[in-house]
Design a protein around this nucleic acid. Structure first.
Lengths: 156, 156
DNA sequence: CGTGAAAAAGCGGCGTC
DNA sequence: GACGCCGCTTTTTCACG
């Protein structure tokens, strides 16, 4: 949970990798004036410490098939730790749930889901929300356009 | 915008890459029973066609420094194409805006932002929302916990 | 599509500061 | 501790069949 004091080299490396992680260690080294092995050591360290969570290809859902993105606001009855954890585990184990945020305010959870059809979504609401006695209310936003994706963290 | 008819090999490759794009073409080939160059040709084709949008490292914001994730619901006055495009371009050019979704219903846009502090967020609201005559109303959710990240598209 | 060779990248040890 | 240098191994890339 603690931050392992990233210096300006580390931040520069992250800035490159979060935009394009296929950039070779050699050119990264040229950009930040460091040798390729030094870059490699820093990347490995940040992977181990969890600063770099994963390396993935981002896929355009629109190009795949019938795929609909929906954003769901969730309100629970009880905010006890157990119920929050149950909800979290349920969402984590549901592949259609892409992202899950626990937020402050009247809304408790915000989910971003990708489903193949609205009937698919409807059956999921049954499983996740209607059959969940702790769900007080949920509101669905259907995404018409995903204008921006990146998970880039601003690094200054 | 059209889908370039992805066969089961393509989908299997995407399924691997969206979880870990450091997987070598050789092991991908072994999994789906194809040679490494064949895997590479398919990857290149999907990159060119836009199915694969980008290749990135995902960074844990909590490990970086003071970083706060907020989710904003936006309601506009006018939903004319010009105004929607203006808004879209504004959000696209703002680095703090991580993700931007145009949605149906009373809410028009949902933004996911990462800011270094609440005062940082406050100054952004001025620039993006208060100084924007087309913004009717916005609602802020502060993220306490990012329980799930992936941008994985379910592939069946 | 697969094979195989050449080029590039990743990886690890070792000496230095 | 971190750096750079130098080989070795793996991966990527691109010919050709």
């Amino acid at each position: 949970m603690h931050m392992d004091s990233l210096d300006k080299f580390d931040l520069a490396i992250l800035d490159i990798l979060q935009k394009d992680n296929t950039t070779s260690q050699k050119v990264i080294g040229e950009v930040i004036s460091l040798s390729a092995p030094a870059v490699q050591r820093r990347i490995k360290r940040m992977q181990k410490s969890g600063v770099i969570q994963s390396n993935v290809s981002i896929i355009n859902p629109e190009k795949i098939k019938q795929s609909i993105t929906v954003i769901v606001e969730l309100e629970l009855y009880e905010e006890s730790l157990k119920h929050l954890d149950d909800a979290k585990n349920l969402f984590n184990s549901t592949p259609e749930v892409q992202q899950c945020y626990y937020v402050t305010g009247d809304t408790d959870y915000i989910l971003i889901m990708i489903v193949s059809s609205m009937s698919h979504y409807e059956s999921l609401t049954r499983k996740l929300f209607f059959n969940n006695t702790n769900v007080k209310h949920f509101k669905t936003h259907v995404v018409m356009n995903r204008a921006k994706v990146g998970l880039n963290v601003p690094l200054d």
